[in-house]
Amino acid sequence: MGVASPTWTVRGNLPSVTVAVGQTRTSAAINVPLSVQQLKVEIDGTAWPADSVVYAEVDVSDDGGVTWPDVTSITTSKANLQNNLCSVGVLFPAPNANSSRRVRGVIKVLSGSTITLVGTVSTA
């Protein structure tokens, strides 16, 4: 039985593009609404080649997107996905009270084959 998971709201989509080995794709900066206590980048790897090693990063800015000091990442591949999904996120110690807080996702393919990016940035 699963827990009562937070109510996630999709705030933006990652760019729907192909990402070749060595390429990096970065989403637009997305506003983090007040009171939000967590956020995540979630990627659908259903169509990933088995040999692709993917790096996904979520960055948080507290100054409107000028600097991105809060960096969190995962490295994964198709064999490690859970229900064909992976995610990387951030838990704030308290509800967001900063109207200048922003989030963005960064995706790289470290090795293997080109992937087609399907993913979202969500908050709860």
């Binding site: 995540k40 979630e42 809060d70 969190t72 995962i74 859970q82 999904l85 990387v88 951030v90 110690p93």
Partner: peptide, 20 residues
């Protein structure tokens, strides 16, 4: 004391300090 990382569908997660 940066924010806490969450992860799913991965064996490797990283978190960075913002300053030296």
């Amino acid at each position: 004391n940066p924010t806490t990382a969450t992860f799913a569908g991965s064996t490797t997660v990283t978190k960075s300090f913002a300053s030296g």
